[in-house]
Design a protein around this nucleic acid. Structure first.
Lengths: 328, 328
DNA sequence: ATGAAAGCGCTAACAG
DNA sequence: CTGTTAGCGCTTTCAT
């Protein structure tokens, strides 16, 4: 018995394929009566439209493509995976499936393969490089795409966390909890995300009337962090706010080596939560974003884009401030 | 100019679509001369066959589906991701793409959606439950599928690591390096993988003429592990071989609490490597399997299955014994 | 409101 | 060795 087709239904019901098609898709005028009759019969027979045939007729695949990072750095991976769960969720809700491909450096082969073979109607990029060739490529082929995270590229539709808001809230809360002189540490100053988090931090300290706050951008190695800490201690900093989980871990290690107690002498918080921050003994206060929601939003946005609806960049303000062991 | 079709080429070259189709696919008799002429022209024009159209004609999608775990336990995730990289690799090599879907407990909805809508030609399961409803479902719908890892189900085509070989090699090597009386700890005795690893271990100790070896199956909580250790120390065990990374970490913690030095007083090795075992200070000896290769093999096997070629279970003997800090 | 007919781009008998 | 002819299952003008 295999699969029943649209034509079968038409014949059984003595109507034309067109009518059945219209009844199922909801497009075109059709009397409510026949529509119901057809839909009922279709359900009864367990009819499933053949997505490929529909696709061929409409030049669509009802697939979206997602590019996965190749390497398996843990925090990158959990971020990506949570996004992916959200993306498939959002996609399947709209009748789309997710095709996955793995990035191979800053190259476009794997994307080209998908786009040229029209295996997907749109693309989601979950992290981008500085001069991302994939963005160039996606722009030139005119396939819809959405970027998750902060890109410099102004032409791309972006879906991102509220980095400003998260940073602001965390800083505000720590000040409320007694921090007198917080310092900000880490982050590549050329990245948009760094600017956003810095601005959120600044807003909170400004509102609290704190002046001459310390900001140590960069700080990519232990040496720099250590000297940053030394400077801070002389200036009576009582709270480190770290740009990301990596810098957070370096800061904690450096403080431990220096014999400085956390949170007794100084509070430490991360502006980005990660599995690494709640591992076993240490449990670090952090801003936790909802990546799954981010993924869903990205999928939704992309599908709207595919349907030629107008879309704008969107910022997910779904985050939580997790105050854990490293802050008072 | 968009996309050039098979028909365009036929017209330009004054041949029939069939001939072009044959030239491109390699199926059917065709003179080497015209084949070259057509292929050259196609390449020159940048012709890309429309996969959807081909699919519709052949009832194929040139997609395979992979089910991703929903949760994000780190070791599960890295395992899955490495497999995924291998799978996409193997699939793309054969002209297939990978559709991903996320498991929602022991349910089949997400799979049904893909199978019923014929969005993929085959399925890869990367981990299975005891009474896996997805396997039942896949069997009943007659879509090809392969299972990565060890399943009890004898009817399914399996692609797995050489658990026996890895366990044997690790044990053999540790004995060679001086272990006099190794003990095996952990593992759910109802799982196939446990049996396989146990057998490998036994082979090595038997060959070394060691008798009355200790085996502690189960040991899922700290209490049990601690008592296992106590028994072992009385019997002068000088080497713990642990079934997986979880039991390894528990064993190490228990040994530390007991004040027993690793590797000075006792060696510890894991029969399964994981990111958690090389984290920071501790770096545990372990059997490292090549998951990427596993993924590639699974994709290859599945595609052969799709093509109605005969396939058998396959065991990847691509593993490495990593002797690190916890063994002498 | 419904139907006829022409595709979407490719494959696969069946002829020649 | 090559061409003709029907599809695959659905959508979409254009009539009626």
């Amino acid at each position: 018995m295999g699969h029943i087709t649209l034509d079968d239904i038409a014949q059984d019901l003595g109507v034309s394929k067109t009518t059945v098609s219209r009844a199922m898709s909801g497009k075109g005028r059709i009397s409510e009566k026949t529509r119901q009759r057809i839909k009922d019969y279709a359900r009864e027979k367990g009819y499933r439209p053949n997505v490929q045939a529909r696709g061929l007729a409409q030049q669509r695949t009802y697939n979206i493509a997602v590019v996965s990072p190749q390497d398996s750095c843990v925090s990158e991976l959990t971020f990506f995976h949570k996004c992916l769960v959200g993306i498939t969720d959002g996609a399947e809700k709209e009748g789309y499936n997710v095709i996955i491909t793995v990035e191979r450096g800053n190259r476009t082969d794997e994307l080209e393969q998908i786009v040229e073979n029209s295996k997907a109607d749109g693309v989601i990029l979950t992290r981008t490089f500085y001069d991302d060739r994939r963005i160039e490529y996606l722009k030139s082929s005119d396939i819809p795409y959405v970027v998750i995270g902060s890109t410099q590229d102004g032409d791309s539709v972006r879906v991102d966390n509220d980095n400003f808001g998260g940073s602001y809230e965390m800083t505000r809360l720590l000040i409320e909890h007694g921090a007198k002189y917080p310092a900000l540490i880490g982050g590549d100053p050329e990245l948009l995300v760094t600017t956003q988090r810095h601005d959120g931090f600044m807003k909170a300290v400004d509102e609290a009337g704190i002046e001459d706050v310390l900001y140590f951008p960069g700080s990519l190695d232990d040496g720099t962090v250590t000297s940053d800490i030394d400077i801070s201690m002389k200036r009576d900093v009582d709270c480190f706010i770290c740009m990301d989980e990596e810098i957070t871990l370096m800061t904690l290690t450096a403080l431990r080596t220096r014999g400085i107690l956390v949170p007794e002498q100084i509070s430490v918080a991360s502006l980005y939560d990660s599995a690494l921050l709640t591992n076993g003994d240490r449990s670090v206060s952090a801003v936790a974003y909802d990546e799954m929601y981010l993924g869903q939003a990205a999928a939704g946005t992309l599908i709207r884009l595919i349907n030629n609806e107008t879309v704008a960049d969107m910022t997910s303000n779904s985050f939580a401030i997790k105050l854990r062991d490293t802050t008072r």
